[in-house]
């Protein structure tokens, strides 16, 4: 039998060890991706279109597609998630209806993304005849993103103290005024953080997009901003391979001679972008919170 003091020491030692292991794995992974990927990066790599058979292709179109898809998916999912979260937290009573909705959201958020992708393929691509397109991809990403975003916004609303709601109502504000003029402004920093973090997940998503946004990236004419032209970057009906899908594709069927280098470079770009999202989320959230709350 150990005495409590030794027991304590062993426990703390083990916890440190486990935590250290997690950090170590993360650092090793990041280090490997960055060390092998960073040397590939250049302005040319970031802006040039990909080449199918030759050396020297870039990921310009894929990078652009990733951002465009992200913005579209956010434009669709954010209002819905915001509405759902406000309803669930501020209005809904605790009864079987809301319990069912919450359970549905839980289940939806644990769906494997490849299932979401296949559903998106059958429903948006085939049934609604949207084809392999940015729009199909954006809808699929909405399904993927909606539950996570709803939960995160609901959590943000939960952090606002009940006394704030009482304060608003006691001033003779209606429920809706209290929510929109008191609670939401107070929750903005935390909601923003949640949005950016979920943007990171959406940005790196591949499986849900393979069958919806497609695996080809037709060349884009960045001087043509008419969304109805097929080569316009704004056209939502064109197939659009994203960066994450590109990495998957190169590694499974890439036949260009520098496939390995391009895959490493793309991975580095992806990881850097997601890191950037995370840091931006922290920075903006903290800054906004400070601006709103302290002198």
């Amino acid at each position: 039998m150990m005495n409590p003091k030794t027991q304590n020491k062993v426990a703390i030692g083990t916890l440190y060890g486990v935590a250290g292991l997690v950090v170590l794995i993360l650092l090793a992974l990041l280090g490997y991706i960055l060390v092998s990927g960073l040397p590939q990066l250049s302005w040319h790599f970031l802006t040039a279109p990909a080449k199918a058979f030759l050396k020297g292709g870039g990921v310009g179109v894929q990078l652009y597609n990733s951002f465009y898809l992200l913005i579209l998916a956010m434009l669709i999912s954010f209002p819905i998630a915001l509405g759902a979260a406000i309803y669930l937290y501020e209005y809904a009573k605790d009864n079987w209806v809301t319990t069912t909705i919450r359970t549905a959201i839980e289940i939806l958020s644990s769906l494997p993304s490849v299932v979401v992708g296949l559903f998106g393929f059958l429903f948006f691509v085939v049934k609604l005849r949207l084809g392999f397109s940015i729009l199909s991809g954006a809808f699929a990403l909405t399904f993927f993103n909606l539950p996570l975003l709803t939960r995160s916004i609901e959590d943000s609303l939960r952090t606002i103290d009940t006394t704030q709601r009482e304060g608003g109502l006691a001033l003779g504000l209606s429920r809706w005024e209290t929510v929109t003029r008191v609670i939401l402004p107070a929750a903005v920093p935390s909601i923003l953080t949640g949005v950016i973090l979920s943007a990171g997940r959406v940005f790196g998503e591949a499986a849900a997009l393979i069958y919806t946004a497609g695996q080809s990236a037709p060349a884009l004419d960045f001087t043509d901003w008419n969304p109805f032209n097929i080569s316009s970057p704004l056209n939502p009906m064109r197939p659009a391979e994203t960066l994450a899908v590109h990495i998957w594709k190169i590694n499974s069927e890439g036949i260009m001679p520098d496939a390995k280098a391009i895959s490493s470079g793309s991975s580095a770009v992806l990881v850097l972008a997601i890191l950037l999202f995370n840091f931006a989320a922290r920075y903006l959230g903290k800054r906004l919170y400070k601006r709103l709350t302290s002198a």
């Binding site: 006394t163 704030q164 009482e166 304060g167 608003g168 006691a170 402004p185 107070a186 709103l292 709350t293």
Partner: peptide, 12 residues
């Protein structure tokens, strides 16, 4: 109108 136990100014 009502004033509460915990001061609850809005974060503005």
């Amino acid at each position: 109108g009502m004033v509460f136990q915990q001061p609850n100014p809005f974060p503005f």
